[in-house]
Write a protein that binds this DNA or RNA. Structure first.
Length: 110
DNA sequence: AGCCTGACTCAAA
DNA sequence: CTTTGAGCCAGGC
């Protein structure tokens, strides 16, 4: 469907992230051709209607490697970290993805 | 049209 | 290393 909202496009991108890999908010923004829209991507994730396997917003982390928020409160962030770990993404106890550049993923060129 | 929000980011201190 | 402040953007009012 042409003319999809920025949010919908963001969901489409993150749905392609393989398990065990992540993208940063800024990465998603760039993938959509809006390099400066990282914050807007965050808003999209916040409004994600279907967190979990269908629209894996837990695979989106901050540029500095920290996990970032997930589903509301700080408890959500903990879940996000566990979720990532269960998928094989190494996360330190202080909530940082180890070797971000190694697990960082980029969609194939459109 | 302007104003406000916020799962962000980066440079500076 | 941490904290701050300013810049950023799409969407909803």
């Amino acid at each position: 469907m042409p003319n999809e909202s920025f949010y919908e496009q963001a969901y489409q991108v993150i749905r392609r992230i393989p398990q065990g890999r992540v993208m940063t908010y800024a990465d998603v923004a760039s993938a959509l051709g809006r390099p400066g829209a990282a914050r807007a991507v965050g808003t999209a994730m916040r409004l994600n209607p279907n967190p979990g396997t269908h629209t894996p917003c837990h695979r989106i982390v901050k540029s500095d490697g920290r996990a970032g928020h997930y589903m509301g409160g700080p408890d959500g962030t903990r879940r996000k970290i566990e979720f990532l770990r269960s998928e094989g993404v190494p996360v330190t106890d202080d909530g940082r993805v180890q070797d971000l550049d190694r697990v960082r993923w980029a969609p194939a060129r459109a």
